[in-house]
């Protein structure tokens, strides 16, 4: 290439200096969009994270006959593990169950002489949504009401609660995904439109460049570099704003408000990185692509 990066850099800086208003408009648009995205990403993550941790507690409790032997326990354990949608089976002996209950309600269990509790298996499905299938495989193995194994006395029956929980989780997840998709679409359209406007103001310039015999890329490079510079500047502004907001507003609140310190949100450093890449990428690709229509002279 006969033309150095320096030449194109000077060209794009000149363009920005002389077209300060459109460049500033593009900068402001990208900045605002990135701030909104930057706030939204952790919120979506916290919401879906909370929903998922609730869904993660979905399981089927399998109660053995009161007088089940160790051999029977081991056999049932094996049968449960072989079921198709089961991820994990946890055994809780009657002694453990009693100790657990006693801790929760010491007075009630003081009165009991023996241990009324059966051995229990906690069966976790591979995904929360198949929990009812798993329950049916255990409780209705050979037809309605026929247990998987004669040593099983009963299976927990929280069908209503489980269904409701699953509906709510699915709703939250889908809503968050939809909002995220809408926000991303809106951002791309908004940024693309701003770039298109500022290019439209300069379409005559492009026309003249073509008449003088400039190749497409010779015209395009300064615009792409301008996109990179505007995108980077906007991303930096957005990052500084978000970091200030986190340090000044969020961190002091987090200590007395449990929700904000939700565990599974993106860290501030990866978030900065994502915003920087998004800002620079969308702006550069946007200006490069938007220019294409004006290049067809």
């Amino acid at each position: 290439m006969k033309h150095s990066l320096g030449f194109f850099l000077r060209e794009s800086l000149r363009a920005m200096r002389r077209n300060a208003a459109p460049s500033f408009a593009a900068l402001a648009t990208v900045t605002v969009t990135l701030i909104v995205v930057g706030v939204f990403i952790p919120i979506v993550q916290a919401t879906t994270g909370a929903a998922n941790s609730a869904a993660g507690k979905v399981m089927v409790d399998v109660y053995m006959q009161r007088h089940a032997t160790h051999a029977q326990d081991a056999r049932v354990m094996g049968e449960l593990r072989r079921l198709p949608h089961v991820q994990r089976v946890v055994f809780e002996s009657k002694a453990q169950a009693l100790a657990q209950q006693r801790r929760q309600d010491p007075l009630a269990y003081e009165l009991l002489s023996g241990n009324p509790l059966p051995d229990t298996f906690h069966v976790y499905p591979s995904t929360p949504s198949v929990v009812l299938t798993v329950r049916a495989e255990i409780a209705d193995a050979g037809g309605p009401g026929q247990m998987l194994d004669p040593a099983i006395a009963s299976v927990s029956n929280h069908t209503q609660d489980t269904k409701r929980l699953l509906t709510v989780t699915r709703f939250v997840t889908i809503t968050a995904a939809l909002l995220a998709a809408l926000l991303i679409a809106a951002s791309v359209l908004l940024i693309g439109n701003t770039i298109r406007l500022s290019l439209y103001a300069r379409r005559r310039e492009v026309e003249v460049m073509k008449l003088v015999g400039a190749t497409d890329w010779f015209i395009r490079w300064p615009f792409v570099i301008e996109g990179v510079v505007v995108g980077a500047a906007a991303a930096l502004t957005a990052i500084v704003t978000l970091a200030l907001a986190k340090v000044l507003v969020l961190d002091p609140l987090a200590s007395n408000w449990g929700l904000i310190s939700a565990p599974h949100t993106i860290g501030i450093v990866p978030l900065m990185f994502v915003l920087l890449v998004a800002g620079v990428g969308v702006s550069a690709i946007g200006s490069g692509l938007s220019l294409r229509r004006f290049l067809r002279v």
Binding site: R14, A15, R18, N19, R204, E205, E207, V208, M209, K210, L211, V212, G213, A214, T215, D216, F218
Partner: peptide
Amino acid sequence: VPFYRRNIGVVFQDFKLLPNR
């Protein structure tokens, strides 16, 4: 085409100058 155009000088009624230069 750009390379072809470099062999031709063009002048127009509306000058077609680059306003920012």
